[in-house]
């Protein structure tokens, strides 16, 4: 029975705010673990970095209720700038971790075998099932999943289930899992926050009407009625911008706000989901062709002792260009 909701936000058990709180708890737990890591080379600044990040999740919504949006947005904005400065001054680093040696892990791997893959595979399976079939599961007016963020609340449930299953398989408790995750979070480091920073920049671009300026620029060269040229411009633009910056995520808000959103979505009614998905992949074609994406293209050449440090890129170029062309035609074929 699917009722038409009049209320904007129906109550949900796994509401997005609860998911944020959970993320906040995880990050704060890692902050405490970082502070306890006495051999950590950048202990205090790394802890501060993650504390500021975690606060936005832990205290953000409470703060809006208590002191209002304006003050909350201000302190979050200040935190963002401090986060960027800490990262920019290279004050966030890996700590020290208690990791069993390779042999020990190989022994465990033998003991558990392919069972180790079960929890990891459970996550997407449970998420997809919940999103497609159980999305409007509810008891009276209380929904189980957040109705406007079904996938993410389903993901939260899936991760919890996977954590319990790993507990059963490996005897490693969820608390131990949390402690272990500090190694992963630290190895991702500032890059963990980059997507959110880029989304924020995309938001600033909206306020500053940057998209409009790009639109004006685009109309100088291409007729906004030519659907195919617009699609080609979006895909090739994503690839070129990514090649310059070495990062498809950074190219995405610029090209999408400037070309995809005004001309293709608003102008020609293109379907947003395939448009952005294929657009991002066009950016990835650029990633395969640029030395700017050093950790994918240059570092492996060094690891393998290749004489020509661009050889990995050279091998990747034919696949990248073929896929870019396929993307253009695919996008043209499916979005309209």
């Amino acid at each position: 029975m699917k009722s038409v909701e009049q209320a904007p936000e129906p109550l949900a058990l796994l509401s997005i705010n609860n998911v944020y709180l959970l993320i906040g708890f995880i990050v704060m737990f890692l902050v405490i673990k970082t502070l306890q890591d006495s051999a950590h080379p950048k202990r205090l600044s790394t802890a501060l970095f993650w504390f500021l990040f975690g606060s936005v999740f832990m205290f953000g919504d409470v703060s809006i209720t208590l002191v209002g949006e304006q003050i909350t947005y201000l302190w979050v904005g200040v935190s963002v700038i401090v986060i960027a400065l800490l990262a920019g001054m290279n004050m966030v680093s890996m700590g020290t971790y208690d990791v069993p040696d390779e042999q020990f892990k190989a022994l465990d791997a033998k003991r558990f075998g392919n069972k180790l893959f079960i929890p990891a595979v459970i996550i997407p399976i449970v998420t997809v099932i919940c999103t497609i079939i159980l999305d409007d599961l509810h008891l009276g007016t209380l929904y189980f999943f957040d109705q406007s963020h079904v996938t993410l609340s389903a993901l939260t449930l899936a991760c919890t289930v996977a954590l319990l299953i790993s507990w059963r398989i490996t005897k490693g408790s969820p608390l131990q899992a949390l402690s272990e995750s500090r190694r992963l979070v630290d190895s991702i480091g500032w890059a963990a926050i980059l997507p959110q920073m880029l989304a924020m920049l995309g938001g600033v671009f909206i306020v500053a009407n940057t998209g409009t300026a790009i639109q004006d620029l685009v109309t100088l060269f291409i007729s906004p009625d030519n659907r195919f040229m617009l699609v080609a411009l979006y895909c090739v633009g994503m690839a070129l911008f990514t090649m310059i910056m070495g990062n498809a995520f950074a190219a995405f808000p610029v090209m999408t706000a400037g070309v995809a959103l005004p001309f293709l979505i608003q102008g020609h009614g293109a379907a947003p989901a395939p448009l952005v998905a294929i657009g991002m992949y066009s950016g990835y074609c650029g990633t395969l062709m640029t030395p700017m994406a050093a950790n994918f293209n240059i570092v492996p050449a060094a690891l393998l002792d290749l004489k020509d440090k661009y050889q990995v890129i050279k091998v990747q170029i034919p696949t990248a260009i073929t896929l870019l062309i396929i993307n253009i035609f695919l996008m043209y074929g499916v979005v309209f």
């Binding site: 995880i26 979050v76 991760c159 899992a177």
Partner: peptide
Amino acid sequence: IATFGEKFMNSRQLASFLLILPVIAI
């Protein structure tokens, strides 16, 4: 600064990959 804060708050769903890391870590 407030715009920064607002947009950063509104894109918090981007951090949900953090939920997966404990599973992978263990």
